[in-house]
Design a binder for these strands. Structure first.
Lengths: 316, 316
DNA sequence: CTGAAAGCGCTTACAG
DNA sequence: CTGAAAGCGCTTACAG
C-alpha cells in the first residue's frame, strides 16, 4: 500500500495486477477519497481545464454556441472555466487576465464588440496556450500577432450578394447589418423596385433596447419600404413587434428576414424566415479545432466556416 | 531576491518595504512572469473557483440567471467552472463528479428536471463545500440530507390563487403549469365563466418541441377557451405562434399570460403579459448567499424568495 | 510488480 | 525586514 502504487492504480496503469488494484479502489471508496486533480496536474504539467470567454448570453445565438462548446469539451474530458463579458472590452481584459493564472490548456474567445484584432491572449508561462476565436469576423485578422491562434469559426458567408430584389429594402437609414446572402428571398415575388444593398454598419452593436425602436423608426422614415433584412433573429423579433403594433403582419404586409435560425425562430409570430447557421455546431467546431491544436501544437491554425442555409418560413 | 520575498510581495504583504517591492514587481513584469494560482492554492489550502451547474441555457430565463451568478462571482474575485446539463440527470451526475476533483470553494446548482431532492453533492475532501440550489423548488427539500446546503432561490410565489376569473381557462387538459398568481389578470374584463384552476402538472417538463403543439391541441380540444396561463414566457411565445397561425391575436381574441419576464417578452408580437421575477437578481442572490456561506461556514442555510410582480402588457 | 525519493510552484512558520 | 526549510497532494523516474 504505497503512494506510488495508489497513483498508478488511479491512473489505470497496466503495471498493477488486478488484485492489488481492487484492494486500492475498494479502500479509496471506503475512505471517501477524492482525487485532487489540481495537485496531480501541478506535478504532471498538464491541465484539463479550458477557458471559454463569451460576449452575450442574452442572445440565444451565443447561448447555443456556448452549449455546443461545453458539450464537446466535457465529452473530451475537459472542464470549462467560463466568463461572460456582456460585450464589455474592459471586463474581457479583466477575465482574460484572471484566467491566465489558472493555467488552462486552452481558450476559446467569442470576442466582445470592439476587441482589437491584434489582441494578444496572455498565455500561461512557457507553454503557449492554444486558443480559438469563435463566431466573429475578428478571427481572420489574428494572424501574425498571435502565433498560437488556432481556429476561426466565422459566420460570415459570401459577401456582396445582399440584395432582395423583390422588395423595397431600406438602405442607409436602417441600423441593421445584413450579413447574409438570402438568395431564397429573391424568388419571393413582389415589385422589384430597389436593389439598394443594406448598408453594412460595421462596429455598430445591436443594442437590445433598440431592436424595437429601430423598426419603428424605419417605418416612420421610409414608409414605402416593404422588406427588411435584419442583423439577426433577435432584431427581427423586435421588428415583428413594431410591425404588429401598427397592425401589420410580417409575411403579409411586409417581408422580414432574420439571421441565425435561433431555436425560437421556428415559432415566432409568425415563424421567421432566416438563415440557418447552426450555432451549436459552430461551438462544437470551435472546440474541436482547439482540441486538435492541443493534441498537436505543431498543427497550423485552421478555420471552419459554416455553410449558411436560407430558410423561408412565413415572415418573408 | 528570495523566493519568500517574492511571494510576500505578490500577495501584497505589508512586511516588505516599498523599494524592494518595486524591484520585484518590475522584474516580474519584465520576465513575463505569470502567477500559478493553482500551486499557490494547493499549498495555501484555499480555492478561488466556484462550480456552476446549469440545466438549460436555451431558455433565456436560465441564461439570465447564469449571467447574474457569473457577474457576482467574478466581482468577488472568483472564477467560475461551468457545466451544462440540458436537463439530463445522468450528465448532471457526471459533471458533479468531475467538478468535485477540481476542489472548488463552492457550488451552485440549477438542478435538472428529475434531480432527486435528496441529492448529495459530492464534496471535496474534508472541507465540506458550501453550495446553493437555484431557481427550482427542489431547494426546500434539501435539508437534513445535505447539511451543507445553503441558499434557496425559489421562484414560486404564493400558491392557490391561480384563477383568472375574466376568462375561460382550460383546466386539466392543457399542459402548462401555472406558477403565478396573476391578480392583474382578474381585472381584465370578460365573461367570468370558469374558475377552474389550471392543473399543476408537476414533474412535467416543458419540452421545447412541444410548446407550440400544446397550444394547437388546446385550441382543438377546448374551442371555448379564451385564455391561457402559460408555464413560462417561452411557452407563451409558442402559444402566440399557434394563435397567429389561426388568425387569432393574443390580447384581442385570447388572453395569454407568461411567467419570468424574459428580456424578449417586452417585444414579442404582441408584447407579453407576464410575471416579472428578475432572473438576473435571482442569480446574484444565489451567488451572494453562497459567498456568505463560504465566508462563514457556521452560518445556517438561508433562502431568498423573489417577489413576483405581475406585468400586464398587450397579450392579456 | 512495489517502494523510496525528488520535485511541480507556491506559502508559511521560523531563524537570522 | 530577508533567507533557508518544510510541505500542500500528486507523478515520475529509478531501484529493489
Amino acid at each position: 500500500v504505497s503512494k506510488s502504487t495508489v497513483s498508478l492504480v488511479l491512473n489505470g496503469s497496466p503495471l498493477i495486477p488486478g488484485e492489488t488494484s481492487e484492494r486500492v479502489r475498494e479502500a479509496a471508496a471506503r475512505l471517501g477519497y477524492v482525487y485532487n486533480r489540481r495537485a496531480g496536474q501541478l506535478r504532471g504539467g498538464s491541465s484539463n481545464t479550458i477557458a471559454v470567454v463569451i460576449n452575450d448570453l442574452m442572445n440565444p445565438f451565443f447561448a447555443e454556441i456556448l452549449v455546443g462548446i461545453e458539450r464537446k469539451l466535457v465529452d473530451a474530458g475537459y472542464v470549462v472555466l467560463m466568463a461572460h463579458t456582456s460585450e464589455d472590452v474592459a471586463r474581457q481584459d479583466q477575465v482574460l487576465h484572471t484566467m491566465r493564472e489558472q493555467g488552462t490548456a486552452g481558450l476559446i474567445l467569442c470576442p466582445a464588440y470592439g476587441t482589437p484584432r491584434t489582441l494578444r491572449v496572455p498565455s500561461s508561462r512557457g507553454a503557449s496556450r492554444s486558443w480559438s476565436w469563435c463566431a466573429r469576423w475578428a478571427a481572420a485578422a489574428t494572424t501574425s500577432r498571435v502565433p498560437t491562434t488556432n481556429a476561426a469559426c466565422s459566420t460570415r458567408p459570401a459577401p456582396a450578394r445582399c440584395r432582395a430584389q423583390a422588395h423595397r429594402i431600406p438602405g442607409r437609414t436602417h441600423r441593421h447589418r445584413a450579413r447574409a446572402a438570402p438568395e431564397g428571398l429573391q424568388g419571393r415575388a413582389g415589385r422589384a423596385q430597389d436593389q439598394a444593398r443594406p448598408r453594412t454598419a460595421a462596429g455598430q452593436r445591436p443594442d437590445p433596447r433598440r431592436r424595437y425602436q429601430t423598426m419603428q423608426q424605419l417605418l416612420d422614415t421610409q414608409p414605402d419600404a416593404t422588406a427588411a433584412i435584419c442583423y439577426n433573429d433577435v432584431v427581427a423579433f423586435g421588428a415583428m413587434a413594431a410591425l404588429g403594433e401598427r397592425g401589420l403582419r410580417a409575411g403579409v404586409d411586409f417581408a422580414l428576414m432574420g439571421f441565425d435560425n435561433v431555436a425560437d425562430a421556428a415559432h415566432s409570430n409568425p415563424p421567421l424566415s432566416t438563415v440557418d447557421i447552426r450555432a451549436g455546431e459552430l461551438g462544437e467546431h470551435a472546440a474541436s479545432l482547439l482540441l486538435a491544436r492541443i493534441a498537436d501544437p505543431e498543427r497550423g491554425r485552421q478555420s471552419y466556416v459554416a455553410e449558411p442555409k436560407v430558410l423561408i418560413r412565413q415572415s418573408g
